[in-house]
Design a protein around this nucleic acid. Structure first.
Length: 553
DNA sequence: CGTACAGGTCTA
DNA sequence: TATCTAGACCTGTACG
């Protein structure tokens, strides 16, 4: 599915004078050169043979092809591959070193926000993709168990295709529904620079309750002294803190914070900036987080609030298929540690409940607390006690994260199941040799940093392997959706429109929704097999077919 | 005046 | 008996 047999690879390179070169990599190097304007025609013609397109960076090639109505089946993204190989402890770094290694290290993706970079003076054009492609092949050749790292490279590149396709298609977004939602909560859209009526009313109530006629609750430096003057002994102004208090001003203050947040983060300004022609189009950044999770830019896609999801509505005659994995990371931990006792719990739809049913813990909340403690490094209080108890029950799984934490505290690199390496620590605690007597840090502070880095590496191995599972899920699903038909370009068929760590949203013609739901489940099963082979760990999904994103779950 | 950071709130 | 992982992005405020 991810890697074909008898693969044909075609390298695309931009050349001076607005031309593009297509070089066959596996038949002696036949070269075709065309004006850049003829690239879509070239790709359309060659795509019938299902080649793997090799290019410097998907963000520099694929949006233009998608805009021309094309879709490619597979690619090798050298920028993402370089980043992975450079940090993988499985790779002999000497094989990757070349004259423009630093240039590849520094290469950034381009976004819709800076299209000028493409034409003007793009640092990518000073790099040699053919040479880099050779180096990456050689580097992979030196790796033990190269199938795993090879899978990761293929999946990362497939993710780059998904990311570009999701921005191209966009998330269907009804500005009229969003506006109505805002108007119901805040009042009609005010003139620029004015507070909406609803917010103004709540503000008046807050000011009256605290006897502070000019108070600006958006300013913590004003709000904190005001709360203390009212006899409330608080040291911060977070909602969670305020909820504990008993004072007549608290209710309107919490309401003010909620409405102000909605207005600032997803109000009319957000709509104006990020929604156009009925679509919300964030930029997705595969590999943008060190653990391998995706980052995003533009419109805060990673924190799309539940509150505004009613405005995400499928087109007429279309539906959303929304799917998320229940308890992804504990399942991934069971699989990567090959902990059979935890895998047994992971065969149930509710892993935490299964831990109760097998007598490992007394309650579901204990199970959850213990698992989160293991993955995040909770050692104190209730969480720490649960970790101790569960370590005896699941020694393989808990031992794996514990070892990752110890390695991090020693300043070592840890890696995910498929071989993504953690960054090296930069703090002074990690460089004992450089420690001079002058600015030697406080030993207690140094230990705090060391333990904090241990929590990071502990979480890295699980979060990162979870991201690999999700990447495989996406890659397999992308192919299955394309085959679900009907004929046409990406947006004519069922296609991905949203992805958030362990959740996907597919936009599909209504009559194909059940087929899509099957494809989403089949892809999850396939992802589990790709990562864990025959080791028995399940990845049950919650799948909903809905008109609005808000109705899922 | 513009930039950098702190505090806060949303997501998994 | 907290406050432990990874992000984006808003406003207010301090700094240069």
């Amino acid at each position: 599915m991810l890697r074909g047999v008898a693969e044909v690879r075609v390298l695309l390179v931009r050349r001076p004078g607005g031309t593009v070169e297509a070089r066959e990599l596996d038949d002696g190097g036949t070269v075709t050169r065309v004006p850049a304007g003829e690239l879509p025609a070239l790709v359309r013609e060659r795509e019938t043979a299902h080649p793997r397109w090799v290019w410097d960076d998907t963000t520099r090639w694929y949006p233009g092809l998608l805009a021309a109505g094309l879709r490619v089946e597979r690619c090798t993204d050298l920028r993402l591959g370089h980043a992975l190989l450079r940090r993988s402890p499985r790779v002999d770094q000497a094989t990757l070193t070349g004259p423009d290694t630093a240039g590849w290290d520094a290469l950034e993706p381009v976004g819709a926000a800076d299209p000028a970079l493409f034409d003007l003076d793009d640092p990518a054009d000073r790099l040699d993709p053919a040479a880099e492609q050779e180096r990456q092949r050689a580097a992979l050749g030196t790796v033990d168990q190269r199938a795993r790292l090879g899978l990761l490279l293929a999946a990362e590149s497939a993710g780059a295709l998904v990311a570009a396709e999701m921005t191209h298609a966009g998330m269907p977004w009804r500005a009229d529904v969003h506006d109505r939602l805002l108007t119901d909560l805040l009042g009609p859209r005010p003139a620029a620079g004015r507070r909406p009526e609803g917010l103004e009313q709540v503000l008046t109530a807050v000011r009256q309750a605290f006897g502070a006629p000019a108070l600006n609750p958006d300013s913590p430096t004003e709000l904190l002294p005001c709360l203390r003057a009212a006899g409330l002994e608080v040291t911060d102004t977070r909602s969670w803190t305020l909820e504990q208090l008993d004072h007549p001003g608290i209710t309107p203050l919490l309401q003010y914070k909620k409405l102000a947040r909605l207005l600032q983060a997803n109000g009319w300004a957000w709509l104006d900036t990020w929604v156009a022609e009925g679509r919300f189009r964030p930029t997705w950044l595969p590999g943008g987080v060190v653990t391998g999770r995706w980052a995003s830019a533009g419109g805060g896609a990673l924190s799309a609030p539940v509150q505004v999801r009613p405005a995400a509505v499928a087109d007429d005659g279309w539906r959303f298929v929304v799917a998320d994995v229940a308890q992804l990371e504990p399942r991934v931990l069971a699989g990567m540690s090959r902990d059979t006792a935890m895998a047994e719990a992971a065969r149930a739809a509710d892993l935490y409940q299964a831990m109760v049913d097998t007598g490992a813990v007394a309650s579901r909340s204990d199970a959850k607390l213990g698992m989160l403690g293991a993955m995040y490094g909770g050692t104190r209080g209730e969480s720490g006690r649960m970790v101790d108890r569960l370590t005896r029950r699941y020694p393989q799984a808990f031992g794996l994260v514990e070892e990752a934490a110890r390695a991090g505290e020693r300043g070592e690199v840890v890696q995910t199941l498929l071989g993504r390496g953690s960054p090296l620590p930069t703090g002074s605690w990690a460089a004992p040799a450089a420690e001079s007597d002058d600015d030697r840090p406080d030993p207690r502070e140094r230990d705090q940093h060391r333990r904090a880095w241990g929590r990071f590496t502990r979480n890295f191995v699980v979060q990162g392997t979870g991201a690999e599972w999700a990447l495989c899920w996406l890659a397999v699903l992308r192919n299955r959706l394309w085959q679900t038909g009907p004929a046409g370009q990406v947006t004519d068929r069922p296609h991905l429109v949203f992805f958030l760590h362990d959740e996907v949203v597919v936009h599909t013609p209504e009559h194909l929704a059940d087929d899509v739901a099957d494809a989403v489940r089949a892809a999850a099963t396939e992802a589990g097999r790709l990562l864990f082979g025959s080791f028995p760990v399940d990845f049950p999904l919650d799948v909903s077919v809905v008109r609005s994103w808000a109705d899922a779950g």
